[in-house]
Write a protein that binds this DNA or RNA. Structure first.
Lengths: 236, 236
DNA sequence: TCGATGCTTCGTCTATCATCGAACTATGAA
DNA sequence: TTCATAGTTCGATGATAGACGAAGCATCGA
């Protein structure tokens, strides 16, 4: 028996198609939930759970619990580097899995996360709110500033004081699926999304199971006026 | 449902222990025969043949027929790089294939890398040789200096000029998995190791298949005198 | 408290694949 | 030629592990 790093063990982890799908889905550094990864790999949650615990035991991914979700991310850039290298070898040998990609750019742009806005626009909104000093972010939590309350009342007719909830924070930073950054969650996030719908600025996609949020033309304008990135901001 | 290179296919090739053994045996860039690889992997020639054709189809190794032998080598340094990366991940996660604990530190300290010295002492030796200006390292290759030749002749009774080999360089830097640095390979590396054995300074562990190299007490002293890191080196 | 949802554990089934014995081909040596 | 060695192909076998249904646990919201 040989000794040394067990590269076969690590390689066999990547060697399963389902796990490889999950890993490539994580390659951009974002964190995805177990369900999302299961869907990406085209397998049931049970199977995904088994794979994920193996990957975790193998030190390739690490979990971050958030609510009842379990977000997984690669344990480091070196993992992505190895995956990149493997992709290079496969590419060179001509082993490509050509496939159709019904990518949903719309999903990346705006979607429902539970009951609040996520995606590019969701992240952009929280960014803008921070820039405008409407929220103050401490280590883990976010809170609305006095100016933020005024803003919500005037611009969106939302009374932040009435959003108090015994078991749910008003403001919460929620990890974003497509942007790997945070967007606004909590009762305020839900209220804002709800208001967008009431004002006819946006609507959930009618397709079954779709999480896409479609903004109307006027809705997009109003949104941009309040949280637009036109103003000097938007870093990386 | 993804498009792109099929990394699972390549990874699964490496994911088999027998194949991983073969690949690591090839990691220094030399070409080995099918039988040698079978022996390295601890499997029969039939099984090895099957593995080798898979690795070849996967573009990881390439054959070179010579007489009735079939030499296999890695298709490029990028393959070795990926293997090295995998070893790094395994190492970081603590996945070493060592079941018998006691041998593990010995293996890291000194082991056979085909026919030359690897491990801590191997790296230390090449380091010291560089410090003493016995070798000159260019981009990828290493060559013995005039002083290096004298040193080899006087200290170890090795005539470097007689080490020329049609298919193997005299000096070669071999990447060390446990140290992540290089040790001395090539015919000189083999000759030095051979001399160590002849002088009774060191001996390969008698255990079957073990790559551990055990130094004798006097051998350790002589080695330290020649390549020790304690000694005040000239220069730098 | 209750139900809904995300995820895990358990148990079973099934397909894949590594393995080796035996037989075959190819090269080299006597 | 004949023998020996290197390597491959074929077929049978056995163990692994990936897959999912069902049930269990945990968290959230009402």
């Amino acid at each position: 028996m040989k000794a040394g790093p067990d590269i076969a063990l690590v390689a066999s982890l990547v060697g399963d198609p389902a796990r490889a799908n999950m890993l490539t889905a994580l390659m951009d550094g974002r964190a995805l939930t177990a369900s999302e990864l299961a869907h990406q790999a085209g397998i049931t949650p049970q199977t995904a759970s088994s794979h994920l615990s193996k990957l975790e035991a193998g030190g390739l991914i690490e979990p971050e619990k958030q609510g009842r979700h379990r977000y997984y991310r690669l344990t480091g850039p070196d993992v992505a580097g190895v995956l990149e290298g493997l992709a290079g070898l496969a590419e060179r040998a001509g082993h490509t899995r050509v496939r159709t990609g019904p990518k949903e750019p719309a999903l990346r742009r705006a979607r429902i996360c539970y009951d609040h806005l996520a995606g590019d626009l969701g992240v952009q909104m929280l960014d803008s709110m921070r820039k405008q000093r409407l929220v103050r972010q401490t280590k883990q939590s976010i809170e609305l500033t006095g100016e933020g309350k005024r803003f919500m009342a005037e611009a969106l007719q939302i009374d932040a004081d009435r959003l108090a909830h015994p078991r749910r924070p008003i403001c919460k930073a929620c990890l974003d699926w497509s942007e790997r950054r945070h967007h606004l969650a909590g009762t305020l996030g839900a209220a804002v999304m709800n208001r967008f719908t009431e004002l006819n600025w946006a609507a959930r996609d009618p397709a079954l199971g779709s999480r896409v949020v479609n903004f109307t033309r006027t809705g997009e304008k109003r949104f941009a006026a309040l949280f637009g990135s036109e103003q000097p901001n938007q870093g990386s």
